[in-house]
């Protein structure tokens, strides 16, 4: 039997094919980060020589790093797949932003709500996501084929038992499935695979001198002039990188000199902090991720 990355790759390809067979309107959640990049790479492998038979979906808060937008454009062009970009434009018009409204409310409106809007509008029934079980406690309990009721709610107690690699893909009217091909991958696996397969990722993952300010004990990058500087705040150049990428005002950078994949992998292994450490939404209160998922967050 094969093992390690080869096994993970084979399983993920199997999951892709199985989900596509039962899908009427599949879509791949493309968030531009490393997990999405690996997921897209696996989709290409599963369906080669055909193009992956589904569009890419980016739920855009408009607050991503500039380098992320550039990467998104490159990837969409190179893959030849349709890219759907959706923004909660009503909320955007109402001036919702990560500063005045708090990270939790902002995330709810610009990410969770926005995602539900586009899923409903386009009637997607099979939605691929790059979540991994090693990321967070409630994710560790989620199935690979995870069902959502009509309101996109996740009911952790009513999950279908998932035996062997036999996925029950029967979708009831109004239901949809979130499919997580990277469920059994770890952060370490993802980087090892990116290295092995030479998958392009956003340069923000690598250390570089970047303009940053200190906020709430973390480094926040001044990516454009929309970031309101607080009294006394003055951008300084620091060698930093990001372990996860999201909205730049909410993504904490870490000090690092890792400019190569090998250095980055060593750092990941040695780190005493989880990759979600820089994210604000998980630490609000115990069980906050579980609550978000029940409400329809990815």
């Amino acid at each position: 039997m094969i093992s390690g990355l080869r096994l993970l790759e084979a399983e993920s390809m199997e999951i892709f094919r199985e989900a596509i067979v039962s899908a009427r309107r599949p879509v791949l959640m493309y968030s531009i980060g490393k997990d999405s990049s690996v997921m897209l790479h696996l989709a290409k492998k599963a369906f080669f020589p055909a193009k992956p038979p589904l569009p890419l979906l980016h739920v855009d808060t408009t607050w991503k790093f500039r380098e992320m937008y550039a990467h998104r454009a490159r990837v969409a062009a190179e893959s030849g797949m349709e890219l759907i970009v959706h923004t909660n434009s009503a909320a955007l018009g109402a001036g919702i932003n990560p500063f005045t409204h708090g990270s939790s409310y902002y995330t709810d409106v610009m990410k969770t709500e926005a995602l539900k809007q586009v899923l409903d509008e386009r009637q997607f029934d099979v939605v691929f996501g790059g979540a991994r079980r090693d990321e967070e406690k409630s994710r560790a309990k989620e199935r690979i084929f995870s069902f959502r009721s009509a309101g996109h709610r996740w009911d952790p107690k009513a999950q279908r038992p998932e035996l062997w690699n036999l996925y029950n893909t029967h979708i009831k009217p109004g239901e949809s499935i979130r499919v997580y091909p990277l469920s059994n991958w770890t952060e370490f696996d993802v980087w090892q695979y990116i290295k092995q397969e030479v998958i392009p990722v956003v340069p923000l993952y690598f250390a570089k001198l970047r303009p940053v300010v200190v906020r709430d004990g973390g480094w926040i990058m001044v990516d454009d002039d929309r970031l309101p500087l607080l009294p006394g705040e003055k951008p300084q150049m620091q060698s930093v990188r990001f372990r996860t990428l999201g909205c730049y005002p909410l993504s904490g950078a870490i000090e690092s000199v890792a400019t190569t994949l090998d250095a980055l992998i060593d750092e990941t292994l040695a780190s005493q902090f989880s990759e979600r450490q820089g994210r604000r939404i998980d630490t609000d209160k115990p069980g906050s991720m579980e609550k978000k998922k029940q409400d329809g967050y990815f």
Binding site: S3, G4, L5, L7, G217, G218, I254, A270, Q272
Partner: peptide, 22 residues
């Protein structure tokens, strides 16, 4: 503050990436 907390160099990168998963 925001450091990676590297305490020692880890040789685990040398672990075979296809090492058997149990």
């Amino acid at each position: 503050m925001g450091g990676t907390g590297i305490t020692e160099s880890v040789q685990s990168t040398s672990m075979d990436i296809d090492a058997a998963t149990l």
